[in-house]
């Protein structure tokens, strides 16, 4: 059986790949965006942490919004969607993004498995604030509440199991300063 295909912009490049799907209409189910990105498009940033949208390790940006790719089924992703992953976050010349620079400068990881979600989730949050004309550097408490899923613009928690929280919060704050300029 021929598989359906999805064509999206991934980190600025047009890509096309099949995805697995079953059923039709309201009973349709399909492969998660996470598997599609990792297994078909060789992306390594988004990670399988929990598979139930509770930890954030799989976060990618879908049309600018932080998206838990482990529960996002491919048939619900539009053709021509714009997808950004950690793999493509650095500038084309390899220059790290301010978030990447800040995470390194503050050594904001232990095992580093959760870093994808923290960086990509914060990226979407900071970019959307800036796009909405909010050029205030978020306070420490705002960053903590955002990462805890306890802020007006985010109800989804991000997990770090190693206990690197204070460094991560500081890194997001430092990057925000740089992004806002």
């Amino acid at each position: 059986m021929a598989m359906p295909t999805r064509a999206v912009r991934l980190n600025g490049s047009e890509v096309t790949a099949d995805y697995e799907s079953a059923g039709t209409g309201t009973s349709q189910a399909s492969e998660p965006l996470l598997y599609w990105l990792r297994d078909r498009l060789d992306q390594h940033g988004p990670r399988f942490g929990c598979g139930i949208a509770q930890c954030g390790a799989c976060t990618v940006l879908l049309d600018g919004a932080a998206t838990r790719s482990c529960v996002r089924q491919m048939h619900t992703v539009a053709d021509e969607a714009d997808i950004r992953t950690l793999d493509g976050l650095a500038a084309p010349g390899g220059e790290p993004h301010p978030l990447q620079r800040a995470f390194t400068a503050l050594q904001a990881a232990q095992c580093g498995f959760c870093a994808n979600g923290l960086i990509m989730g914060s990226l979407a949050w900071l970019e959307s604030r800036i796009a909405a004309g909010n050029n205030a550097v978020p306070t420490e408490q705002e960053i903590k509440d955002f990462l805890s899923g306890a802020s007006p613009d985010n109800t989804r928690n991000y997990l770090c199991r190693c206990g690197t929280h204070t460094r991560i919060v500081a890194a997001v704050g430092a990057a925000a300063k740089e992004m806002i300029g």
């Binding site: 790290p96 978030l99 390194t104 990881a109």
Partner: peptide
């Protein structure tokens, strides 16, 4: 600085 961290922040580190 940790030798492994930059690669963990740009998805080039292989877990």
């Amino acid at each position: 600085p940790r030798v492994d961290l930059p690669g963990k922040f740009d998805a080039t580190f292989r877990f």
